[in-house]
Nucleic acid binder design. Structure first.
Lengths: 173, 173
DNA sequence: ATCTGGTTTCAATATTTACTGAAAATACAA
DNA sequence: TTGTATTTTCAGTAAATATTGAAACCAGAT
């Protein structure tokens, strides 16, 4: 039964490659997504060199993206006693992954939008012309919606897994 | 009261520029986001030439991105009787904008991920080794979650505005 | 049929973003 | 201290993406 070994390697390679391609759609760079996929499906923590070798990328690239993943909280550095070099392991719990990604996306997509909208809404607050009022109104509507989406996002991402499932079941049922 | 005119132009310019910058965060190209912002805050439909002039971009660029916005459904082409050239106007209703964007994001981010995950889950279905089973299990969990997110997204994006607000109020309250 | 105002396409170019590889820094061990 | 294994940084380069501008195209008016 060594055919399975080969099959697994195949499937995992496929997964890593495809996940990398997906990453670009998600606004995440390909390498970062690939490393994430690799670590999520790794039986144990990996070193920088293992990642480099597996993905055939440079040390600099591996390093930068591992650090980025750590800063997101999707990957942890672990030390092995007696070992000098760093090992990396990914968070595998999907709900946890989701909450991390949701938080990050909110931070990158919603928060700055809200800032812009608030500023523009304030700047047009007092306008009296038809055009001025229409502008203010439109921006205001956008602002309200984004603020709302922001709150929702917070609420959901801070839920415990079980509670979220419960809510979802009600919604989908 | 012509100071307000100036102020409005200022505020709108600001909004367009910033919205464009935001677009890049959202994985939308800058010009497309700028045109969208411009049209959302325009008192009436605009021609390609007006867009070109306002944003100081080439005809080709304006054309491509207007078409892209139309294909998303965020912008409509309108014909004015007796007028030969095309006019463009944006959808202004925020909930409608949201549902369009949600649908598109699902199509670009969730659907392809689901495809990859299903494929990898299937390919590892029968594996018997510890590593094989672990891989299958991990991919499976991701698959289940993405499928779930996909369904949720559909549900919400097809809701009528009022219903969504009602649900949200319950959730936030 | 051809002119005119407008749209569409696309090869060339510019801009942005990602990646490499090697040098510099760090950290531990002898 | 000096040496060695490892991490970190970053200038240069490569790859991907967006933009231009001009030519080809199209449709209605003359």
């Amino acid at each position: 039964m060594n055919a399975e070994r080969e099959q697994l390697k195949q499937a995992r390679g496929e997964f890593v490659a495809q996940w990398g391609a997906l990453g670009t759609q998600w606004g995440i760079n390909r390498t970062m997504a690939q490393i994430h996929a690799l670590l999520m499906t790794s039986p144990g923590p990996m070193t920088t060199d293992e990642v480099m070798e597996e993905l055939e990328i440079s040390r600099g690239n591996a390093h930068t993206n591992l650090k980025e993943l750590v800063s997101w909280g999707l990957v942890r550095m672990v030390v092995r006693k007696g070992e000098r070099r760093d090992y990396f392991e990914a968070e595998k719990e999907v709900w946890t992954i989701f909450t991390i990604v949701a938080r990050e996306r909110k931070r990158r997509e919603l928060d700055p939008a809200l800032l812009v909208l608030s500023h523009c809404a304030d700047a047009s607050e007092e306008m009296t012309s038809v055009e001025g009022k229409a502008f203010h109104d439109q921006v205001r509507q956008l602002q309200d919606f984004v603020a709302f989406a922001s709150k929702m996002s917070d609420r959901i991402a801070t839920m415990k897994h079980g509670l979220a499932v419960q809510l979802a079941t009600k919604l989908l049922g």
